[in-house]
Design a protein around this nucleic acid. Structure first.
Lengths: 210, 210
DNA sequence: GTTGTTATACCCCGATTGGGGTATTGGTGA
DNA sequence: TCACCAATACCCCAATCGGGGTATAACAAC
């Protein structure tokens, strides 16, 4: 029986998934928490084979939680769970050592398969995610020309823009000159092929960058 | 036993909730669909006491689905389910006759209570939602000064802005003069207390306006 | 060791925005 | 009926933005 810890801020979802597994599935949810910060103390107390981790959480998100667990020395196969298909998030999750990636609109059988694979330290990607990764390596696809290629600095710029800051305010917030801000903004808009800051913010939010 | 139809595009969530209910709860999920369009044909075949309806769905959203069912002559108590707390959505749901409103981060016991109440045609609001509605009637609160007071036209303007259109492009898209577009944009920014179009788009997306 | 990327910084300039004011129309509701 | 509001439209104008070009230092990658 594979023992699973669920980390998901949506209580209903966690409880639902918990009661979804039948003995036949070979999976049992032994514990769940709505807050990534609590994960370490749970792992201290409980034996866990697989972590089912939601990416989209308010306080500490899934990727940051993985990071935290790694730093604390835990090495438990982790299946990332998300509503959105974001190449950036996928990359983030994989770079932290996630074993798999599944979407919330997957079916129960897909989830069961995923947990089994991950528990054996095999990778699992949901078919839709698979397609994206495939496309990504194929070159300039919709996934490619999105966002994964933005630098951290550039994302900071977008965040400032979304907060209503103008060039001057951004330069003061980031301690750089207005010229630099302009250059960054221009580079970003070129990369993402947008024409206004407003459109830029929408695109970034769609892709969950901010 | 209260027979429930779940309409939710997230298969896992629906399956989870389905298996969550124990005989003691007095609730049974008899059917579920991931697409609002299929709801009418299900209701033809199945006796349903309560509909648990996700608001955020891709093709036909929860509110549009309620509308569809109403036009087809169905009058089944409906509990709206959502991840976000949006005053606008709450108003939309209520105006279509929803009996209740619950968030996905509610607990199982809250959901059970909600379904029971709704099945008896009593209203149920999740405590967080309750607070918002209360605040709303109290006057100028955070909920108040958000968005529900934007006109449809103003929302169209925001949508155009988020697509990267400038004043001229918007005026052409909506068949109005550039002056009018400017006036609208200014009014919106005043209402929402933002300074740039970029910030405006972020705010609108946060509140699920676009 | 050369190429590529990132962050930094500066120049010019025309188009657009954002902020201020005002006004007419048509519809909704009191 | 009268008041209110949404949608429409116009005026002025300073500040900002978006688009173009160029460059250098630091660091990674190949």
């Amino acid at each position: 029986m594979i023992k699973v810890l669920i980390v998901d801020d949506h209580d209903l979802f966690a409880e639902g998934v918990k009661s979804m597994f039948k003995p036949d599935d070979g999976i049992t949810v032994t514990c769940h928490t709505t807050n990534g910060n609590e994960a370490p103390s749970i792992l201290e107390a409980e034996a866990v084979d697989v972590i089912l981790m939601d990416i989209d959480m308010p306080v500490l998100d899934g990727i940051a939680t993985m990071d935290l667990l790694k730093r604390k020395g835990y090495d438990i196969p982790t299946l990332m769970l998300t509503m959105h298909q974001s190449m950036r998030r996928i990359r983030g999750a994989l770079s932290k050592g996630a074993q798999g990636y599944i979407l919330k609109d997957a079916s129960k059988s897909e989830l069961v398969e995923a947990i089994h694979k991950v528990s054996q330290r095999q990778n699992y990607f949901h078919p839709k995610v698979n397609d994206m990764v495939f496309d990504y390596f194929k070159g300039k696809t919709a996934a490619k020309n999105s966002l994964q290629e933005l630098s951290e600095r550039e994302i900071e710029i977008i965040q400032c823009l979304s907060e209503g800051k103008n060039t001057k305010a951004i330069s003061e917030a980031l301690f750089i000159s207005e010229h630099t801000v302009k250059t960054h903004r221009r580079n970003i808009m070129q990369k993402l092929n947008v024409n206004t800051s407003a459109e830029l913010v929408k695109l970034a939010m769609d892709r969950e960058l901010i």
